[in-house]
Amino acid sequence: MMVDKKRHTKFLFENGHLSDNSIALYTEALIDDSKFALIPTQVLVHTEECIECKQHIIETYELLKNEEFVVHPIIHQRNETKVFFNLPINQNTFKQNSRSFQGIAIAASLVIILALYFFLVYQVKPDGDKLFIKYFEPYPDVVTHKGNNSNELEPFELGLYYYTLNNYDTALLIFSRILVKDSTNEAVLFYTAITYLELKKSREAIRIFKVLDNQEGLFNQQTRWYFSLSFVLQNDFKEAIPILEKLKKENGFYSEKARNLLSKID
């Protein structure tokens, strides 16, 4: 235990100031409040008094606060966060990981070879990118109240303002900021996913649509339609087909579109 304690202290501080570990953890806590509980007391106490460390944390926070590669993984991991301070690096675990990776690599190679085989045998395949361009239209802003004469724009309305201007980078930035504070807001999640699709980031869009698709809400059919298009964009028709089939059976606004798209990929 003594060794572990020494190790933790060493990793928390460096040359009398916070180490990069502590700076990074504090930065993430400023982005996602729930991580504050993970900050060790001695780090909190040191930061309280040390202007240099405060400066370092604020600098790092300013660099990363709007970057989705940090903001979104934190939101994604919120429920999976573990305290690592009591876990010294375990070489055995690492070797096990390494072995399991070899297994995964072999399995992945086999999958790739099989995929190549099927690709060569059945070369005629629809082009997901072209289909996506043909069928995708950004969902209109149905949230902003047009008759609102107030000069004050809510953050979400501001995001939608940029969304309708096709400035998706800024819209995404604003939506991300809202989601940091309210990660379950259905409308914000929906428009964030559409914005990702506009930016051709289908993987991120799918991650959000998966969450929305599992809950009853205002945008159920819309979610399914754009969810299927995300897979189409990835050329993953196998995943898109069951969603489209479901939409077709629902006899809603997207049924005809779903039937049409299915005929192109099925």
Binding site: H8, D20, N21, T27, E28, H56, P73
Partner: peptide, 19 residues
């Protein structure tokens, strides 16, 4: 050697790059 896994590696590296 020093990364202890308490934050995302990308955040840790961002702090290093900032330095």
């Amino acid at each position: 050697k020093n990364y202890n896994g308490s934050s995302l590696l990308i955040t840790y590296c961002s702090s290093v790059i900032n330095n």
